[in-house]
Amino acid sequence: MKKTQPVSIIVISLVTLLSMLPLTAQADEPTADKTRTSKILNIVDDLWRGKSSHAVTTMRVKTAHYTRTMRMEGWSKGKEKTLFRILEPLREKGTVTLKSGTHIFTYLPKTDRTIRLTSGMMMGAWMGSHLTNDDLVKEARLEEDYDAAITFEGRRDGKELIEFTLIPKVDAAVVWGKVLLTIFADTYTPVTQRYYDEDMQLARTFTFTDMKMLGGRERPAVFRVVPADKPDEFTEFTYESLEFNLKLSDRLFSKASLTKR
């Protein structure tokens, strides 16, 4: 069984989406189509894989009520452990979030307290963005949640694309009706990912743009979330740097290390 290894907290949100790819399920069914689907999705998935990672990212959020920018630095090790701290703005600087398994701890420098997020908070907005805390945690399980099929291959808007339709499995704890993922046919890098509700109304769109050398290969450096009911709003992540396979101590991801920073 292949495993998704998120590379940073921001990547987690990316991987959230990408790891929904039903890698294992496809491998079980040895039809030619399924094998190909699985293979391509594996490659897409490989884009974000590594034993460990370190990234610096900027998040921009625009809503009807505010626009804000946040810069942060993140580390990951294995698929269960992620840690990030906020660098800017000053108001939130030093805030550290640790994800270990399904637990999320947040250290708040202003009050010098560490808080564990409970199930009741999971659907809450993450840092005022259009992603929820749940989006951050779910990724490890989501690979088992969807059935995938290639539903389009060819030229669209002047680009060679492959489109996957991901349908949640019946028992998957997924609110969506379906997810459409499009990737470039040549590089297998993601272009868009669209989430539909059960009435097949578009709920939110993720777009991946700005191909750049990151962590040793071409990857989309900008990731943007747009809620369908508020097309003027968005959350956008931009990578400044991304490195893979660093040596990171387990202690970095312990609850005790939160307060040391």
Binding site: V61, T63, H65, Y66, T67, R68, P89, R91, E92, T95, T106, L108, K110, T111, R113, I115, G124, A125, M127, G128
Partner: peptide
Amino acid sequence: TFIGQTADGYMANDI
């Protein structure tokens, strides 16, 4: 300890 979100999208936090 309160943790939430301010009207301008930042983290609201106080004791």
